[in-house]
């Protein structure tokens, strides 16, 4: 099967999945929950600060929540990709596709395209929401929204690819979701704990904690390449500083990250087969 054929098949598979996703309730429900939560913490938090002394210095009161919403939705869609990938194998619907013109590459690509298209829908809805909030409150969105949007797309791409990658190794839908969310939680927790440990002055740490911090710092060198959260942090800093080169690098790294994981997912699927 040649490349255009594969893309055609992937697009058809993605179209069906997207339709299925958009006809379901969970995407909308999750988006609303995330929007309400992040708005409460982000927008509400900004106004709480402003209310304390009548003013506040804030860097990204709208783009920050927008980016965070996008990332959470990307994680949700990543878990959705993992669930859908593993569940289709579990239920045998993937096997039916493989009776026909679908192969491992077009299947992995189709699943990925579906999640990315769903993310685009989410990104549009999220952008509209935060632009409206910005207009309503006066909190600035600015050009950063566009850069954060682009970064969010590439980040989502990596996170979704990660979901598919994990789903290749398990044959139970819930197992795939649990494995994926556990890994995502480890990445996020590591980033938070490491960031927190860095912020503590050395004098306030015991020797054991200092060596733990050194250990975390060394581990961070690996995490910089393995964890999407590290790319997230790098990209966020690049956007905040208006550093186009760093931004370009982060986006390119995320692209390579996603492509590598998708290629691995394809190889694993081909090796393990599509049968339940």
């Amino acid at each position: 099967m040649n490349v255009p054929d594969r893309f055609y098949v992937a697009a058809i598979v993605a179209g069906r999945e997207l339709r299925s996703t958009l006809y379901g309730l969970s995407l909308y429900l999750t988006l609303s929950l995330v929007l309400v939560t992040i708005s409460y913490l982000g927008i509400g938090g900004a106004f709480f600060q402003i209310g304390q002394s009548g003013m506040a210095v804030l860097s990204n009161p709208v783009t920050g929540p927008f980016f965070l919403t996008s990332v959470l939705m990307a994680i949700y869609l990543g878990s959705g990709a993992a669930l859908s990938f593993a569940r289709e194998r579990e239920r045998g619907t993937a096997e039916v596709l493989f009776y026909g013109p679908v192969d491992s590459i077009s299947y992995v690509l189709g699943k990925y395209l579906h999640s990315m298209l769903a993310f685009m829908v989410v990104a549009v809805l999220t952008s509209l929401y935060y632009l409206f909030v910005s207009a309503l409150t006066g909190l600035q969105a600015g050009m950063n929204l566009l850069w954060f949007g682009i970064l969010a797309i590439f980040l989502a791409s990596a996170v979704i690819a990660l979901g598919e990658f994990f789903a290749c190794f398990v044959r139970r839908g819930m197992m795939a979701v649990v494995a994926y969310l556990a890994v995502a939680a480890i990445f996020i927790l590591f980033s938070l704990v490491h960031g927190w440990m860095i912020s503590i002055p050395g004098e306030q740490l015991s020797d054991t904690m200092i060596y733990l911090r050194i250990f975390l710092d060394r581990l961070d060198m690996v995490m910089q390449w393995v964890s999407p959260v590290a790319y997230f942090n790098r990209g966020q800093v690049a956007v905040a500083h208006g550093n186009a080169i760093a931004f370009g690098w982060t986006v390119a790294e995320l692209f390579v990250y996603a492509v590598t994981l998708l290629a691995c997912a394809t190889l694993v699927l081909r090796r393990r087969g599509v049968r339940p």
Partner: peptide, 28 residues
């Protein structure tokens, strides 16, 4: 092979289990 689409195009398969997307109509 897994990607022998020209061959697969000539084959129709009914599997042992009814692995069908429940959220679609038959027409879809």
């Amino acid at each position: 092979r897994e990607d022998s689409f020209a061959l697969k195009r000539r084959v129709g398969v009914v599997g042992e289990y009814q692995n069908i997307y429940g959220e679609m109509t038959a027409w879809e």
